[in-house]
Amino acid sequence: MKQDEDLSYRMFRQDYYLRSFRDYAQPTHEKEQSISQFRICPKVLHIDGDSLFLKKCIQLYKRLGLQVHGMYVEEAEMPVKVKILMEKVQPDILVITGHDSYSKQKGDEKDIRAYRNSKYFVEAVREARKFQPSLDQLVIFAGACQSHFESIIRAGANFASSPTRINIHALDPVYVVAKVGYTPLWKKWIFTMLSVAQ
């Protein structure tokens, strides 16, 4: 498992560095070359139902250089607390995760009541979407191990887990968020084309 984590981390770094080299390789304007840029990455609010995993995730966020506010909240309280936290932090990316499981005894795979915490995740996503309805203004990742993927996506999350009801890795949400956070808002070639047109 440690090896998998390292692999994923390495792949991410590789991707990010390649991208930054590619961008540097094409200065869009002669004047621009002399001015150095600063880069701003989005604010992340991470709400977790497990304080140990939260700690681990925050370490990785820091390693990847993301701005993060982590909060330990019990799954059942998430729908209530998500609005207060969002007003306080004003995040660009919201991560809702914790523990979840599907039990066959309780019902069919389609029935959300057969899942331990999926209903709270869905409710929390709905609350967050009430606050910020646009899918572009706020990116939401929700879900945990064996969560009901379909209803979380339908509630308005951009990313969710888990389509085949397997146990996801605790750090997977962090990689997804990092990828979103480091994808540039604009493609560089648009600027290149504009400066050529001038």
Binding site: D4, E5, S8, M11, F12, D15, F149, I153, F159, A160, S161, S162, P163, T164, I166, N167, I168, H169, L171, D172, Y175, V176, K179
Partner: peptide, 10 residues
């Protein structure tokens, strides 16, 4: 780029 791939995240 995630660890559990398309089976875990969508």
């Amino acid at each position: 780029r995630t660890i559990t791939r398309e089976k875990g995240i969508g």
